[in-house]
C-alpha cells in the first residue's frame, strides 16, 4: 500500500500540481502566450493611432486603453485554459480524482494570473513608450495584480460555465464583461490616480481588493456546480 498525503497538505500539493501542469503545458505550446501577447500589443498600437493623445489627454485616455488591451487579451487565454481541458476530456479524469473543486478553481485562477502577468510585463513597457507615460514604477504592481486577479477570478468561473455550451465563444465574453465592470472601473481609475494623483480620490485599490475577495470566495464555493454534472 502506498503512503498517502491527506488533508490540507494534500490540497496544497494538488493546488501546485494543477498550476504546474497548466503552466508546463502552456510553456510547451505557447498558444495562449502568443495570441494574448500579440493581441495586447496590437491593441495598444491601434489605440495609439485611434485616440487623441495630446499631452493634456494622455493620463485620462492612457489607462483606459491599457486596461482594455489587457482585459480583451486576458479573455482569449482564460477561455482557452478551461476549454482545452474540457474539449479533450481530461477534465473528467481530473474530476474523478479526490481533489476539492475549490482547489481546482483557485489553481486555475492563479495559473491564469501568472500567464496574464507575463503578458502585462511585456506590454507595459511598450505602452509606456507608445503613450509616453511614466507608468513603469513599483506602485503599478498592486494595481496590476488586483485587476488581473479580478479578471481571472471572473473569467475562470464563467469560461468553465460556458465551456459545455455550443455557443461558448459568444457566451464567454457575454457572461464575463458585465461582471468585470467593477474591475475595469477600479483598475482604470487607480492607474489614472497613479499618473495624476487626486487628493481625496476614492480608494480604488480597496474596491479592487474587495471585489477579488468576494468573487474568489463565492466562486471557490460554487465551482463544483459549474464543472460537475
Amino acid at each position: 500500500m502506498s503512503m498517502r498525503t491527506t488533508g490540507a497538505r494534500l490540497a496544497w500539493d494538488q493546488f501546485w500540481a494543477i498550476i504546474w501542469k497548466d503552466l508546463r503545458s502552456e510553456l510547451r505550446t505557447r498558444q495562449a502566450w502568443m495570441s494574448m501577447g500579440l493581441f495586447a500589443l496590437l491593441a495598444l498600437v491601434v489605440f495609439n493611432f485611434a485616440f487623441d493623445l495630446r499631452v493634456e489627454n494622455l493620463a485620462t485616455v492612457g489607462p483606459g486603453a491599457l486596461w482594455i488591451a489587457f482585459i480583451f487579451a486576458s479573455i482569449l487565454g482564460l477561455a482557452r485554459n478551461i476549454t482545452v481541458e474540457q474539449d479533450r476530456g481530461p477534465m473528467d479524469r481530473l474530476l474523478i480524482a479526490p481533489v476539492d473543486r475549490s482547489v481546482v478553481y483557485l489553481a486555475k485562477v492563479i495559473g491564469n494570473v501568472i500567464v496574464i502577468s507575463v503578458i502585462e510585463a511585456v506590454a507595459l513597457p511598450v505602452f509606456a513608450i507608445l503613450y509616453n507615460l511614466p507608468i513603469v514604477q513599483p506602485a503599478i504592481a498592486p494595481i496590476l495584480l488586483l485587476g488581473t486577479l479580478g479578471v481571472a477570478a471572473v473569467g475562470t468561473q464563467f469560461a468553465a460555465l460556458a465551456a459545455n455550451t455550443r455557443a461558448r465563444e459568444l457566451l464567454t465574453p457575454l457572461l464575463i464583461f458585465p461582471l468585470i465592470v467593477p474591475v475595469v472601473i477600479g483598475a482604470v481609475r487607480a492607474t489614472e490616480a497613479l499618473l495624476t494623483p487626486i487628493h481625496g480620490d476614492a480608494p480604488w485599490l480597496g474596491l479592487l481588493a474587495a471585489f477579488d475577495v468576494i468573487f474568489l470566495s463565492v466562486s471557490a464555493i460554487t465551482f463544483q456546480f459549474v464543472v460537475e454534472e
Binding site: S25, T29, D92, A97
Partner: peptide, 28 residues
C-alpha cells in the same frame, strides 16, 4: 476509472502525466 477515450494531458510526457495524478491522489 479508465474510459474508452484515453484523454491524457497531451503536452506532458507519459511520466509527467502519471506524476500529476500521483500528486492528485496524494501518493508519497
Amino acid at each position: 476509472y479508465v474510459g474508452h477515450q484515453p484523454h491524457p494531458y497531451e503536452e506532458l510526457t507519459a511520466r509527467e502525466n502519471l506524476l500529476f495524478f500521483a500528486r492528485m491522489y496524494g501518493l508519497r
